[in-house]
Simulated scan of single mutants.
Amino acid sequence: MKAWFAPAKLNLTLRVGPPQMDGRHPLDSLVCFTRRLGDHLFVEAAPDLQLEISGPFGKGLSAGPDNLVCRAAQILADASVLPPKANIRLVKNLPIASGIGGGSADAAAVMHALNDFWELKLPLANLVALGAQLGADVPACLTGQPVHMTGTGETLAHTGPLAAMGVVLVNPGVACPTGPVYRAYDALGAGPALDVQSVPNVSDRESLLAYLREVPNDLEKAAIRLVPEIAEAMASLAASPNVRFVRMSGSGATCFALYDDEETAQAGKNFVLKGLANRGFWVEADHI
């Protein structure tokens, strides 16, 4: 049975404009993906649409029609005028409500999987247009490549190669749902209208790091107010040896640190694990 990979999404930068009339926020974000850390998804024949969820973060998740995976499958079936028939097995390895696009990545993975399984042969552009109905992160997750995300997530520009770096992800084990973070951001006084600029060449480490230092994650302050443990995660990463950059991803609560290579990132992971021992924090290393 073919496996489909749903990698963790990292918002390396995230500018957020004031809400529009429809309540959605304009975004300006450089997005990339992990290489190994992620959920896995399998599809097989079934008489109707079924979802089975397992894995370390699968407990308590709804497998009903409200799950983003089921919604993605239904949207794809409706657009193709097909009855949604498939058994989907989702292995949840990523924390939920954590700012690394787990649900969005799963939705993107099932759209790719069913496009193949149902032999629809829809081009990526069609999948992206459908995915935009599900959430701001789904279009970027469908590409699976570094992109500059603008609009409300639906406008994507490929950045070209991104500098390879080691990364450590830390989640404090506290859910940080997107909606409350955006509401807290608005309450703090949403920033001015976005002045979107194209992403420069970030194919080497120093250029990438310089760009990240210049462009913030606007949601950090609001998220930390709701989940103070985010600040602790960032402080632990910042204290790790040979760290190059630390930031929160998306709306939180997952934070990440960048290192020159994966070996250095692994040392950073060990340092953070030692400092946060028995605290229930999720800590993993990978590369981008």
Score class of each variant (00 low, 15 high):
P56G: 01
A105K: 05
P228T: 05
V196M: 05
N278P: 12
A265S: 12
M111P: 01
R71A: 03
N87K: 15
N11G: 04
P172C: 00
P146H: 01
C70V: 04
V215Y: 02
K85E: 13
R225I: 14
T254S: 08
A257P: 06
N201K: 04
K92Q: 13
G179Q: 09
A175F: 06
A222W: 02
S62E: 14
G101A: 02
A132D: 10
A129Q: 12
H112R: 03
K85M: 11
D204R: 15
L169W: 05
T34S: 13
W4R: 04
N87T: 10
P139S: 14
L156F: 00
G173P: 02
Q20T: 06
A190Q: 00
K269C: 12
M149Q: 06
L120E: 12
D218T: 12
N201F: 10
H148L: 01
A97C: 11
V215Q: 09
G151R: 03
H25C: 05
P216D: 08
D204P: 08
I75L: 15
P241A: 07
P19D: 04
D22S: 02
V283Q: 11
F57Y: 12
L276H: 09
C141R: 03
D260Q: 10
V202S: 07
E154W: 06
M111C: 07
P95H: 01
L276P: 09
L169R: 03
P18C: 02
K221H: 11
S98E: 00
V199Y: 00
G131D: 13
M234V: 07
S203G: 11
P200Q: 01
S198P: 12
D195I: 13
M165R: 07
I288F: 13
E262Q: 15
T264L: 12
L124G: 10
I288N: 15
L10M: 07
L209N: 04
V167Y: 12
P200C: 03
V81S: 15
M248F: 11
P146W: 00
L114R: 08
Y185D: 08
P192D: 08
I224V: 09
I96R: 00
L142G: 15
D66Q: 07
L237Q: 04
P177S: 05
L90D: 00
M1P: 10
H112W: 09
H287T: 15
G58R: 03
G101R: 04
C176Y: 00
R213G: 15
L76F: 07
M1G: 08
E262C: 05
A125Y: 07
S251W: 00
Q133T: 07
W4T: 14
E206V: 14
E229Y: 11
L156G: 06
A267I: 11
V16C: 00
I224K: 04
P26H: 02
Q197A: 10
G23H: 00
S104F: 05
P26Y: 05
A253V: 03
P139H: 01
D261A: 09
C176R: 05
P47S: 14
G60Q: 00
V168K: 08
A157Q: 07
E284S: 05
R225A: 14
G144R: 04
G144Y: 01
I100V: 10
V199A: 09
G189H: 09
V227P: 13
G58N: 03
V147L: 01
I96L: 11
A210P: 13
S80H: 08
A86F: 11
P18M: 03
L49W: 04
A184Q: 13
K85R: 13
Q50M: 10
H287K: 15
G153S: 10
L219R: 01
L156S: 00
M165I: 02
